[in-house]
Design a protein around this nucleic acid. Structure first.
Lengths: 120, 120
DNA sequence: CTAACGCTTCAATTAATATTGAAATATTGG
DNA sequence: CCAATATTTCAATATTAATTGAAGCGTTAG
């Protein structure tokens, strides 16, 4: 995670509709949500949703896969922990042993390792 | 940390100049930096810097104190860990015991408890 | 007290983002 | 193949954010 990536991720999260989208997707978990379902949940037009989906994708926060007619979006959990790591990188400079384990624990979160798992 | 707060914090972090400012302030630690010094470090006019400082303040990410002619800005470390907590809140729903300790560890970070400590 | 310093405010401009609705594309069921 | 479904693209508009420079205000050194 470099500055450029962190910047576009923060930009992606800096808008109400998109922040809600991400939260819905986080709650949905690795199974994700179809674009149309997400549009209904956040209450925007599909056209507008697509615009925001692109922003989130650009920020590396979500990924998509096609499933029949629908396109399913899900959160890239490692991107979230990467952001955390970036934010905390230079925190506790004299004593990194305080923050490092916390960051490592987030990275090792159960959500993270199995990107292939689909549980519908 | 509610959605409204998280949103303005992410907005604050979503701009290159401001993200750099925060990183400089994180590195500077609790001692903080004078506005003018920060302006030089990030390479913007003081007028422009003030604009961005206000955005960061609005996001609750920084605080200020006057010291003689200068105004010293420093990071609110608890705001950073609050953001992390917000991002991760609904992660690992079935097994929150995985993420919770990590979040707690960040909150307990050495940077956090002693806002008075200045170690230049 | 006054001049210099450090920062903030303001107003004007420019640039970037978000929203809308209509049209286009891709996929699948029948 | 045709009609229906799901999503994306596009162009136009509206909204919001960033930059600039000049003027203003508070603070302190002398």
């Amino acid at each position: 995670m470099d500055e450029r990536q962190a910047l576009s991720a923060f930009s992606a999260l800096s808008q109400e509709t998109r922040l809600r989208m991400v939260r819905h997707l986080v709650i949905a978990g690795p199974g994700g949500l179809a674009a149309g379902v997400l549009a209904t949940k956040v209450g925007v037009s599909t056209s507008n949703l697509t615009f925001h989906l692109k922003e989130l994708e650009r920020g590396g926060l979500i990924q998509s896969r096609r499933q029949s007619r629908s396109i399913i979006y899900s959160v890239v959990f490692s991107a979230l922990s990467g952001l955390v790591e970036f934010l905390m990188r230079d925190c506790c400079q004299g004593h990194p042993e305080v923050c490092a384990p916390a960051v490592a624990a987030l990275a090792a979160c159960d959500c993270n390792p199995q990107p292939e798992h689909i549980d519908v």
